[in-house]
Design a protein around this nucleic acid. Structure first.
Length: 870
RNA sequence: GCCCCUGUGGCGGAACUGGUAGACGCGACCGACUCAAAAUCGGUUUCCGCAAGGAGUGCUGGUUCGAUUCCGGCCAGGGGCACCA
């Protein structure tokens, strides 16, 4: 007996069991159909899934189910990005072992994902903290080491002097450690690096080939890699001003054309000359110390007030040895970029300007706007308010006077290339990249151990393959700060694999970005216990056809994965360079915030919204107290504006949650989760259920008329529209089209002659069910069965539109007069421009609107619009 | 600070490559059904105006027969900035 209301609770678990028992979504590698690899960024097992996951996985599932219906062999796997700091924080706070905590979270979250009814191949599941996964990662690290892709060098970390531990940037708050509150220091450590910078040019130029990536992501990556064409330039130092053994400073500049505007030189606090000068100058030493107390993040460096210290060293201008500029140590110069030294031209660079104003240095303009004379430009120059000149003409610049910026750059480069100092030219052109090598060392427990042994005699020795994986020890404590691996009583003490003497394991673990840089490749054959990848599986499934995840990964994760794929190819673990052919970055899930009168945040589950005098008012259910409705923000625990997917699925069902997630906002933008919205989605579910119920009761009568019934036309138009929008992941538009079709169908069912067109209506209803099946798969299976569909709708082919059913014989064209719409005309579909113009001239309504004005021109845009210019 | 993105009714948004601004949904209001409520169904809903008509896509200037769409300047909000994932 059919219930008048759809019982999602019963139906959803029933269909999930049918899919699971039938192994419907397990992928066979020998499937001969064309492949399609859909992947959503795998989650960090933080405890419970959040609405952002629901959105991400709902989108991926729609793509996967649509491609399956279109006849592809679909690979749609899921796993866990399971190493990372939160597990260690939990270990410290809750006294549970990171592994216990992580695997418990995975179990919970897997259950939650299963309740969403996703078409995932769970047989391929793995967690990156499984030794059976990180074993292969260690193997590849060693192959990279052998292949020259790994370097060991020093870099700076945030050091908490109280907790005696390295802090992540997010653990540094206003320059202080988040737990201890101590002022953070920069400290140099010798660390492992992957040589991503060897691939700078390739990673940059290959962006052009990523046609199915968002333009903005490609732009962000291009800026990140940051190619610049500049000049290395050696400046002689004035004898007696510099520490012994320093007679020059080499700087890097992209604006050698502004050399005549130089007023100072600045070097990084870590520049060798700064260190040397600091040794004899306590005040400078103190300033260098101050620079080191800044945190290591770029944002911290650049937002800090620009400060410098005059070292007393003087450099001779390369174009005029009589001209000397002071050398400063400055807190905004990075040792990692270029040579760690610059010359400052305050008139044409904002940072240099700020610096010059702070230290009262000369500001001389050398590029002027092309429509001024030299004299005018000099007269108009105002030190307090210098003009910004994007591209102009050189002046006050000796031999470069009158040249364009580009000409001057060329001329000055040529000149210095030709001049020698010692055995080297004074200047050399140099392409520089902002991209730095990828430091992967982390002084933490919960990560993949770096499989290297340090031996006093042999140096750094790779762990032999037969000894992999280097497993994390289980017996560790988190009761004190620092790296538990380092203070473990036995773990790090091993014999050197080469000479057999006592040696020490590397106690650093890998950055978790390493784990996520190849998981997509492992998914192609996670069953291979001996090798990280199986080449035939890589060849079959990669690249990922559609990758979906958050925009916050636009740079690091995606760039590292692109590099890692190249590195794997170089070391024989893959055979391609670009892992993701199509990328889609989805927006966040946001929600209103609520606070009580003492300013405490109140979760949405505890409140009630009412309309009072046309205004939305919130009250706390338990206390009845009124609340302030705050701004809409990213769901976060701190503001308590989170809704739990479990609650939503329990009260509305997975289909309803999925449908609402996809319905309103375009997928790349933020979506506002609202109770009203999800209720609306629930009403639509029930409406569909009623439509199907009415349709199956209709007699199976074919339409008498020759012309196809209006519902058939509407259904076939919907097939075209929905398919097109699914291809482009415009789910919100798909849903609008399905709403349209459902409106047409419910009106058709309400009409008196519905019974005489029973077959046409049934067929159209069937099409509607197929169209929403990727989004609401459980409801679709239920309706499909009732409508007499064969087998599972999950296995059914996508409906094919009959193009002849959707052609129109005439069209309505709007007619504008001077760009304002004044009338509509109906023209035959095949009418040419001349015919349309004739109809316009003959139309009485248009003649009236013209009111006797002369027609100067008629613009006819075929099938679009007519504009009359008067 | 630097890089990137976004801005359209009461709200989420639609508008294919410059061609009818507001599809579709939410909310609200009116009506039908009901003893009543829920559910459902029908209608109205950008603003000003009784209407004719006019204005209108963050602000401002420009290009065009025509601009939400292209260009310049500004304002606001968001993402990233290399040890959060």
């Amino acid at each position: 007996m059919r219930s008048s209301r759809y019982n999602f609770r019963e139906a959803e678990t029933r269909w999930q069991k049918v899919w699971e028992d039938g192994k419907v979504f397990e992928t066979r590698t020998d499937d001969p159909r064309p492949k399609y690899y859909v992947l959503e960024m795998f989650p960090y097992p933080s405890g419970r899934i959040h609405m952002g996951h629901v959105r991400n996985y709902a989108m991926g599932d729609v793509v996967a189910r649509y491609r399956r219906a279109k006849g592809h062999a679909v690979l749609h796997p899921m796993g866990w990005d399971a190493f990372g700091m939160p597990a260690e924080n939990a270990a410290m706070e809750k006294k549970s072992h990171p592994a216990t905590w992580t695997y418990a979270n995975i179990a919970t979250m897997k259950g939650q994902l299963k309740s969403m009814g996703l078409s995932l191949d769970w047989a391929r599941e793995f967690a990156t903290c499984d030794p059976s996964y990180y074993k292969h990662q260690q193997r590849m690290f060693l192959d990279f080491l052998k292949g020259g892709l790994v370097a060991r060098k020093t870099s700076k970390v945030n050091w908490d002097p109280v907790d005696q531990t390295v802090l992540a940037n997010e653990q540094v708050i206003d320059g202080r450690g988040w737990r201890s509150g101590a002022l953070v220091e920069q400290r140099e450590l010798t660390q492992w690096f992957l040589k991503i910078s060897d691939y700078s040019e390739d990673l940059l130029s290959a962006l052009d080939g990523l046609g199915r990536w968002p333009e903005k992501v490609r732009l962000m990556q291009a800026n990140w890699i940051g190619r610049s064409d500049g000049l290395m330039l050696r400046w002689q130092l004035t004898a007696g001003t510099a520490p012994a053994s320093f007679d020059e400073i080499e700087i890097y500049t992209t604006r050698p054309d502004t050399l005549y505007g130089a007023s100072f030189m600045a070097v990084a606090a870590d520049h060798p000359i700064a260190r040397a000068a600091g040794e004899k100058n306590p005040a400078l030493q103190a300033f260098i110390g101050e620079c080191r107390q800044m945190g290591t993040s770029q944002a911290a460096l650049e937002t800090a007030e620009k400060k410098g210290f005059d070292t007393g060293i003087r450099a001779k201008h390369p174009l005029d040895p009589a001209w000397e500029v002071p050398v400063y140590v400055a807190n905004f110069i990075l040792m990692d970029y270029g040579t760690g030294a610059i010359f400052g031209c305050p008139a044409h660079d904002q940072r240099d300007y700020d610096f010059a104003m702070a230290y009262d240095l000369p500001i001389k303009p050398v590029v002027r706007s092309a429509n001024l004379t030299d004299a005018e430009a000099n007269a108009a120059f105002d030190r307090e308010n210098p003009p910004t000149v994007e591209d102009g003409v050189l002046f006050n610049s000796g031999f470069m006077n009158g040249m364009s910026v580009a000409e001057a750059k060329e001329a000055v480069a040529k000149r210095f290339e030709g001049e020698s100092l010692g055995n080297r030219p004074v200047g050399q052109r140099k392409v520089n990249f902002r991209l730095r090598d990828w430091g992967i060392s982390r002084q933490r427990y919960w990560g993949c151990p770096i499989p290297v042994i340090h031996c006093e005699a042999c140096g750094t020795v790779p762990v032999p393959n037969r000894d992999l994986p280097v497993k994390l020890p289980d017996d560790v404590t988190f009761d004190m700060p620092g790296n538990p691996l380092d203070r473990h009583p036995t773990w790090k003490h091993v014999d050197c694999p080469q000479c057999g003497r006592k040696a020490r394991r590397e106690t650093d673990t890998m950055d978790t970005f390493v784990d996520s840089s190849w998981y997509f490749a492992r998914f192609t054959d996670p069953f291979n216990a001996d090798e990280p990848t199986t080449m035939s599986a890589i060849a079959k499934w990669l690249p990922v056809d559609q990758y979906i995840g958050g925009i916050e990964h636009a740079i690091l994760h995606l760039l590292y994965s692109r590099f890692f794929t190249r590195a794997m190819t170089k070391t024989g673990h893959a055979n391609l360079s670009e892992p993701f052919a199509g990328l889609f970055t989805q927006g966040m899930v946001v929600h209103e915030t609520y606070r009580d009168d003492s300013g405490n945040w109140v979760p949405p589950a505890d409140i009630r919204i009412e309309m009072i005098d046309g205004e939305r008012r919130a009250t706390e259910i338990a206390s009845g107290k009124p609340l302030t409705i705050g701004s809409i923000e990213k769901m976060s625990k701190s503001k308590k504006n989170v809704v739990d997917p479990d609650d939503i699925i329990a009260s509305y069902g997975a289909d309803c949650a999925r449908w609402f997630m996809l319905s309103d906002s375009p997928p790349e933008r933020d979506v506002i989760w609202s109770e009203e919205g999800v209720q609306g989605a629930g009403r639509f579910l029930q409406k569909v259920w009623r439509i199907v119920g009415e349709a199956i009761d209709l007699p199976d009568a074919a339409s008498a008329a020759d012309a196809p019934h209006a519902v058939t036309k509407a259904a076939h138009k919907a097939i075209i529209a929905v398919s097109e929008d699914l291809e482009r992941l415009r789910f919100n538009r798909c849903i609008a089209h399905i709403h349209d079709l459902s409106n047409t169908l419910s009106s058709a069912l309400g009409e008196k002659d519905a019974a005489t067109h029973g077959r046409a209506i049934r067929e159209a209803v069937c099409i509607m069910v197929q169209l929403f099946a990727p989004m609401m798969p459980h409801l679709a299976e239920e309706c499909w069965g009732e409508l007499g569909g064969k087998g599972l709708i999950a296995d059914a082919a996508w409906p094919v539109a009959n193009a002849s059913l959707v052609v129109e014989s005439s069209l309505t064209l709007p007619v504008q007069i001077n760009g304002k719409k004044r009338a509509d005309i109906i023209v035959p579909a095949e009418a040419d421009n001349a015919a349309v113009e004739a109809i316009v001239r003959a139309d009485s309504a248009i003649a009236a609107a013209l009111a006797g004005q002369d027609i100067r021109k008629i613009i006819v845009v075929p099938k679009r619009i007519v504009n009359i210019v008067v």
